[in-house]
Amino acid sequence: MPKSRDIRALPGLKWFSLGFFVYLYLPLLILVIFSFNATKSATVWGGFSLDWYAKALANDDIRRAAWNSLVIATTATVFSTTMATMAALSLTRNKSLPRKPLFNGMLLLPLMVPEIVTAVATLTLFATIGLSLGLGNIIIAHTVFCIPFAYLPIRARLQGMDESLETAARDLYASKWATLRFVTLPLLAPGIVSGAMLAFIISIDDFIITLMVAEAGSTTLPIYIYSLVRIGITPEVNAVSTVLLIISIFFVTLSYLVEKRGKF
């Protein structure tokens, strides 16, 4: 990378960002520390122990809930990001599409409704049409409210993304698909990635809508964790969260290393 990027540097920015990451990770650090607590309290330290990990891993309910959560979040992310990307592309690149403000507003609609309302309304709708697909019900609900979260970063990226490269490709007789595949999508990738991440985050964390829409046997991790929180968080929850955290850090590191190797 050229050093010329430094010209953007503002003094103090580095320390500010460092402070930000400390703020972001301080509660997590506490979380991890208390997962090794020997007593049954998530807030009062009572010595080191690995018991909670053994307990959490042996807990069928936790495993089932974690699996449900992963299935739902992954599926909803794939669906919502795909739909959002298609929508963002046609709204910014398709010249013949009429009524763009209407479509745009429609895509942002799920944002305007408080979660509890979405939850009750969706439940009522599902009941009215008699939809009963098990996890499918939750996936549908999640896909819908993930769409705007995936859509906004993608559109933010597309807006003002230099169209000249795409025009150049077209001028060089690249087909519409080739232009999309080799020019637009690679340029759009950061937007898609952050959109997909937002969607995943929103889905895996959702509680109220899931609680309302869930059918028998589709308890997700947030619902399970909420049930534990009601009695007071035990280190078991911390242990589960720490395991999830380690898995995600593992994948993050892996993708980082793969990308690095690919570059050099």
Partner: peptide, 23 residues
């Protein structure tokens, strides 16, 4: 298979919605 709820009202809303599949 166990699922849990936090209040009678959650249970009421869930059952009123019909197809919840609980025994």
């Amino acid at each position: 298979t166990m699922d849990t709820y936090d209040s009678n009202d959650t249970l009421l809303a869930k059952l009123k919605s019909g197809a919840s599949g609980y025994d």
